[in-house]
Simulated assay, not measured.
Amino acid sequence: MSQPASQPSVRKRLLASIHDVGPGSERQVEQLYGLLEARLGGPRFAMLVVPDHWGQHPLRANPAFQARLRGWADAGIEMFVHGWFHRDSATHSSGTAQFKARHMTAGEGEFLGLDEATALQRMRDGKALIEDITGRETAGFIAPAWLYGEGARSALAKAGFALAEDHWKVWNAATGNTLAKGPVITWASRSPMRTASSLAFAALARQTLPLTRTVRIAVHPGDVTKESLLSSIDRTLRRFAASHTPSKYAEIQ
C-alpha cells in the first residue's frame, strides 16, 4: 500500500525589532544592536525609527545619526516608521481611548487620538524622511506603544506602507489582511511592578510559544537600564533563535 505524501513543514519565523530608534537613544540602540546581532547570527532584525522623539531629538538635524541609520539599513536592517514625536498630546474623549492612554503606555500613544488627516501627514512625512536618509523603502509603519485610533487606522490604508503591527498581529497596511498572529514579547523598565510582570510574561512565553508559527520580540532603549531585563532578553532570543528562523518582516508578506 502506498504511503500518503508527507505534508511540507511550516517554516517558523522569529521577527525581532529595536524600538524608539533616534539620536537620543543612540548608545542604547548600539548596545541592543550588539546583543541581537550576536544572538540572531547577524543583522536579522528591524529598527523602529522616531523622526523627532518627544520633540527633543530631531533626526533631520543630526547628520551623524543619519549616517548611522544609513549604515544600518545598508547592512540589511529593515526600517519602520514609528510615529513622528512618539508622545501622545491628544485629548481622548472616549472611555476606551482614555483607558489605553492611561494604563497601556506612559503618555506615548501618539497615534491613539489623532484624526485621519493629521495621522496621514505624520505617516507620510516620516516615510519620506527615513527613505530619503536611507535610500531605501521603509518596511512599514508601527504606531508608538502599538496603539492606533480610528484616524490612524484609516490613514494607514492611504499612506503607502506595506506592513503594520500591533500587540497581537502583523497585517498588510493597504488591505488589512492579517499576515501573522500572536502576542509580541516585550519588556518594561518604568516601574518595578511592570518590570516583574514583563519578566514573568517572557518566561511564560519561552515555555508556551515555541510551537507558534511566528514569534515577535521587541526591545526598547530603556531595557538596557536593568540587568534583569537584559538577561531575560538574552534568554528569550537564545530560546527562539533555536526553534525559529530569524527573518525579515517582508518575508511574511
Rank of each mutant, 00 (worst) to 15 (best):
E131M: 06
Q98E: 08
N177I: 10
F201C: 08
H167Y: 14
E150N: 03
E150V: 13
K248G: 10
Y33C: 05
D223A: 04
R238V: 15
H92Y: 11
P144K: 02
G140P: 14
L120S: 12
A73Y: 00
T245I: 11
H103V: 13
G34L: 00
Q7T: 15
W171S: 13
D20Q: 04
S198N: 13
R102F: 13
R239N: 04
L15R: 01
G140N: 14
E116H: 12
R206W: 14
E165P: 03
V49F: 13
E30I: 09
R70D: 02
R39M: 09
L36H: 08
K158N: 07
E110S: 06
G95D: 11
E150I: 07
A196Y: 06
R206A: 08
F65P: 00
G149C: 01
L14R: 01
H167F: 12
A202C: 02
E116K: 15
S197T: 05
K12H: 13
T175W: 12
V49H: 08
P8A: 13
H103M: 12
R239K: 08
A205R: 05
F111P: 00
N172Y: 09
E150Y: 04
A250D: 10
E37M: 07
H86V: 05
E251G: 03
A174C: 03
G109K: 02
D125I: 01
A162Y: 01
Q28F: 09
Y148K: 07
R87S: 14
P4R: 06
Q253E: 10
R44S: 14
R206C: 15
T214D: 14
M1V: 12
E137A: 14
A143P: 05
A128T: 03
R68M: 05
I130M: 12
G109A: 11
N172P: 15
Q56T: 15
P210M: 11
E37W: 07
R235E: 15
I77A: 12
T225Y: 09
R122T: 04
V49Y: 03
G126E: 02
A75P: 13
R190G: 09
S154M: 01
E108M: 08
E30A: 10
L48N: 08
G176T: 13
D132N: 12
E116W: 14
R60G: 09
L112S: 07
R213Y: 11
S228H: 12
P51M: 04
G55W: 06
